[in-house]
């Protein structure tokens, strides 16, 4: 099923693989350097600026950030990063609403949005140990211990 919209997207992102999913969703793969220009393209050519969410993922051998844009159609920009260097350029300058998602992604997965103005902790407590990112696959969170109080203790 190739429609006009899809071919226009393919044309706009010549270096990327564009996959059409169910319900007309388009998945576009990018490198971190291509992200900022790609967001610009979406806004200029497709009038897409509504960033619904940024989903960070730990793919075990790499990290991936999915930028879900909604509008006439849903376009998902998938940015793959090296496992050793999880960094993406921050979109805050272009889309102020991206700030919270980027902060959360940094807290939970350690994917650093480069150029984000305010990287205080948001999703994890202040006394959370440095360098532990709970949503990474190698982090196991132990079950909380429940102990009944002993009388006379």
């Amino acid at each position: 099923m190739t429609d006009d919209y899809e071919s226009r997207v393919r044309e706009a992102f010549p270096d990327s693989t564009v996959t059409a999913g169910a319900k007309g969703r388009l998945w576009v793969t990018l490198t971190p350097e291509q992200l900022i220009p790609a967001v610009g393209t979406l806004w200029e050519r497709f009038a897409l600026r509504q960033l619904a969410v940024i989903v960070g993922e730990d793919l075990r051998d790499a990290f991936q950030a999915n930028y879900v844009f909604t509008g006439e159609r849903v376009i998902i920009l998938q940015v793959r990063m090296d496992h050793d260097k999880p960094e993406v350029p921050s979109l805050v300058g272009r889309i102020p609403g991206a700030a919270v998602y980027e902060r959360e992604m940094k807290d939970l997965l350690g994917i650093v949005p480069v150029g984000h103005p305010d990287l205080r902790r948001q999703a994890i407590p202040e006394d959370w140990p440095e360098g532990v990112y709970p949503l990474r696959k190698d982090v196991q969170i132990p079950r909380p211990e429940e102990k009944a109080a002993q009388e006379g203790a």
Binding site: P125, V132, L135, I141
Partner: peptide, 15 residues
């Protein structure tokens, strides 16, 4: 939605 209880390496148990 995320995470709360874990063991703090510096101060022993936080629970």
């Amino acid at each position: 939605r995320m995470a709360i209880v874990l063991r703090d390496r510096k101060r022993g148990t936080r629970v």
